[in-house]
Nucleic acid binder design. Sequence first.
DNA 1: TCACTAATCAATAAATAAATTGAATAGTTG
DNA 2: CAACTATTCAATTTATTTATTGATTAGTGA
Lengths: 222, 222
Amino acid sequence: MEKREFKNKMYTELAKVTKAMGNSRRMEIIDLLAQGPFSVEKIAEQTGLSIANTSQHLQVLKAARLVEISRKGNFIFYFLAGERVFNAWRALRDLGFAQNAEAGKLLEDFYKAGEQPDPVSMEDLQRKISKKEVVVIDVRPREEYERGHIKNAVSIPVHELAKRLKEIPEKAEIIAYCRGPLCVYADEAVQLLRKKGYNANRLREGYPDWKSMGFPAESSYK
Amino acid sequence: MEKREFKNKMYTELAKVTKAMGNSRRMEIIDLLAQGPFSVEKIAEQTGLSIANTSQHLQVLKAARLVEISRKGNFIFYFLAGERVFNAWRALRDLGFAQNAEAGKLLEDFYKAGEQPDPVSMEDLQRKISKKEVVVIDVRPREEYERGHIKNAVSIPVHELAKRLKEIPEKAEIIAYCRGPLCVYADEAVQLLRKKGYNANRLREGYPDWKSMGFPAESSYK
DNA sequence: TCACTAATCAATAAATAAATTGAATAGTTG
DNA sequence: CAACTATTCAATTTATTTATTGATTAGTGA
């Protein structure tokens, strides 16, 4: 094969994978699937898309081998095809935050709207944990917590938080986390906790980032 | 701003950056610009595109803030807007090699066509260098070598190689490298060297990967 | 086996992207 | 300032992508 032909073919193949990621709906799906497997129905519900549209986007991701499926009863569960998929998503996400002024501003504005100080970084949280200075709460749905969570974190899904405030020590510093930097559960939790007088803050990133960086994690399953 | 609205806007902004990368021509341009600044003319020449087409692709990359420009005399030089751009390109490239069977096969076939054993990894090369077991040659155009190269590598642009064989010690192991895993200069060099009886092989990755991984590099400029 | 359910497919309309051509522009140099 | 040069722009054609609608399929469980 000639040099130019090789290059054309190769870059075309690489672009196929990138194109499959290069759509706002599919980026949101990938971000969601970083938590673990979800059925088409759940994905549609979480993203606000129609079932048919969700299915078509999933076909695109599957054709690009970015996701795989497994059937359980009547449902088909989709999940990311490997760690590289999350790594690429994260590289693109961080590139977006850094290069795209609009994206960076959206994020800052959103954090500011909750009148929060800057979210804590993963390194900060790790330091706080090793000094036993904090209580870490996982505000994602219980199922996602059970699949994997930050070591010693407590599961309090965000919609249960108001009823379970008594479980939270009043003097401790509270760090809430959820799915990722774009997940708003942690913001909602922090807002409520601060209104009740707690010293609360969010982790900037989410569980998949924590795990991917090699920080201590654990799962409820064997 | 409402939760859904925030997410829609945010993923749309992130997708813009990804879409800008998600095109075979623009991926090739980014791969090229990882070597340093190039004029529009040079980029067109290297990629085989028309000037106008090249310019339009560069406008897309510039609008997405993936590249920046600087003027020198009559020429406008384009360069990558930061290390994150290369990181994202690398993540996508490696994702492609791993997930896209066609891309993986193209690459393997291309290496095999030169009847080479497996290319050496960056870690392998680093070990060989520290044991002083190898002669490392940089077969890119001289200008790219001067901007930055693997420490102690010798510059022998691939088209000069045939005339400069006498400079290469016959008993040493030779490792040639160029721009990246898709750059074929190193393959051409290895093919020629092996035909002449040398023990030669290529580095799988290229100089930008080497530098990005923090391995020892140096530049001819101050 | 038959009804049921989750998911996919097919067809369409609307929107967006790519390459080509030729004209226009902004700087530079004599 | 005028000629020149590298690059960009504008207009066009062709191709690709997206969301919607409604029909269809594959598998489950009574």
